[in-house]
Simulated scan of single mutants.
Amino acid sequence: MRIKNFLFHSFAQIFFPIFLVLFFIASVVIFIRIASVTFVIKISFFELLSLYFYTLPTMIFFVIPLSFFIACVLGLSRLSFDYELPVLFALGMNPQVIIKIFLPIALLASFSLLILSLVLTPLSDVAYRQFLEERKNSININLQAGEFGQKLDKWLVYVQKGKEDTNVYENIVLLSLAKENNKENQGLIFAKEAKIVNSNGTMEVILENGKVYRKLGEYFERIGFEQLILRNAIQAFDGAKLGLIEYWQQAFYSNKRQEKTKRNLSMSILLSLFPLMSLFYYPFLGIKNPRYQKNYTILQAMAIVGLFYALMYLCASYIPLFGLVLLPLVWIVVGYWLYWHYIKRFY
């Protein structure tokens, strides 16, 4: 029991600082991603926090496996180079004891990750996309006066002046981004005033007093207008009514999201099982002889993690369902061979 508490204490001292640092870095990345949304739609501070909380399950899901692996390896490595593990081995402790001690927390970590990836992540993903679609459908468009590169559906938009919270803009320029017969439509519209409204589920851009320029062969056509209405039907979010089972069932029948869902399912399960599958890698990387070996543990751990992530991505992309069996089997066998060849024979 004392050895178990001793190892858990060493693990916890490293796990929580690493987790918090990675969580902070991931949060910064998420906020940058959410900030990019505000270039398209207007959201309040509390809505921004809502989007952040929608991404929490995915963020935690990717942070925990890396933190867990590094903490297990570095915890053992620190005990090795402090001569505490060599003393325990000299007193008769077997490396298998370390594996038995880490097995319950690896099971707990993998179970928690499966809940995060297969239950909470799909629900938060649907909620996130539904929230964005609802905000877009509310026609609360965020067009900034004087800024270039803004998009409104299939139009590139520039406005000289905008009236706050009214969706009314002055001196607007629209360049069509639509493609017809693989050739870009050269439509260009100038208008003195534009108003964006939601009319019975259709987004309408009402343009007043302007001109349309279109390329017809070798010539340009100019059309003047007093009022021009551009309409675009608002599309409902097709995943709004998806339940948890229906969400993952998309991986097993033909639909536009089948390949992506199949890849996500494979990656979710493989990454969830990573702490449990890597049980033999913890002593292999963490147990060192401080008298004869140098401390390259963190580099070795990052190399192993990078290799697993690369293999996971390849399996999920090219053999998603078969990879769910192949990668765990190969990873465990290789890990056991390394553990037996480099650790078990000598301790």
Rank of each mutant, 00 (worst) to 15 (best):
Cys72Met: 05
Cys72Trp: 01
Val73Gln: 04
Val73Tyr: 02
Val73Ser: 01
Val73Leu: 01
Leu74Trp: 07
Leu74Asp: 04
Gly75Glu: 03
Leu76Cys: 02
Leu76Phe: 06
Leu76Lys: 01
Leu76Val: 06
Arg78Tyr: 13
Arg78Asn: 14
Arg78Trp: 14
Leu79Ile: 05
Ser80Thr: 07
Phe81Cys: 01
Asp82His: 14
Tyr83Asn: 10
Tyr83Leu: 04
Tyr83Pro: 10
Tyr83Met: 04
Tyr83Ala: 04
Val87Asn: 09
Leu88Asp: 00
Phe89Pro: 00
Phe89Asp: 00
Ala90Arg: 15
Ala90Ser: 15
Met93Arg: 05
Met93Gly: 02
Pro95Phe: 08
Gln96Glu: 15
Val97Cys: 03
Ile98Pro: 00
Ile99Phe: 03
Ile101Tyr: 00
Phe102Met: 05
Phe102Gly: 00
Leu103Arg: 12
Leu103Phe: 11
Leu103Asp: 10
Leu103Gln: 12
Leu103Tyr: 12
Ala106Tyr: 02
Ala106Phe: 06
Leu107Tyr: 15
Leu108Thr: 11
Leu108Met: 11
Ala109Trp: 00
Ala109Ile: 08
Ser110Tyr: 12
Phe111Thr: 14
Phe111Arg: 10
Phe111Met: 12
Ser112Phe: 11
Ser112Tyr: 08
Leu113Cys: 07
Leu113Gly: 00
Leu113Tyr: 06
Leu114Pro: 05
Ile115Ser: 02
Ser117Phe: 00
Leu120Thr: 02
Thr121His: 07
Thr121Asn: 10
Leu123Thr: 02
Leu123Trp: 03
Leu123Lys: 03
Ser124Asp: 04
Ser124Ile: 03
Asp125His: 12
Val126Glu: 02
Tyr128Lys: 09
Tyr128Val: 00
Tyr128Gln: 08
Tyr128Asn: 07
Arg129Val: 04
Arg129Thr: 06
Gln130His: 12
Leu132Arg: 08
Leu132His: 06
Leu132Gly: 05
Glu133Pro: 07
Glu134Tyr: 08
Glu134Thr: 09
Arg135His: 08
Arg135Met: 09
Arg135Thr: 08
Lys136Gln: 14
Asn137Arg: 15
Asn137Leu: 09
Asn137Pro: 08
Asn137His: 13
Ser138Pro: 07
Ile139Lys: 04
Ile139Ser: 07
Ile139His: 05
Ile139Glu: 13
Ile139Ala: 13
Ile139Tyr: 08
Asn140Leu: 10
Asn140Phe: 14
Ile141Lys: 03
Ile141Trp: 07
Ile141Asn: 01
Asn142Met: 10
Asn142Cys: 10
Leu143His: 02
Leu143Asp: 03
Gln144Val: 13
Gln144Asn: 11
Gly146Ala: 13
Glu147Cys: 05
Glu147Phe: 09
Glu147Tyr: 11
Glu147Ile: 12
Phe148Met: 11
Gly149Ile: 11
Gly149Tyr: 13
Gly149Arg: 09
Gln150Val: 08
Gln150Cys: 10
Lys151Glu: 15
Leu152Arg: 01
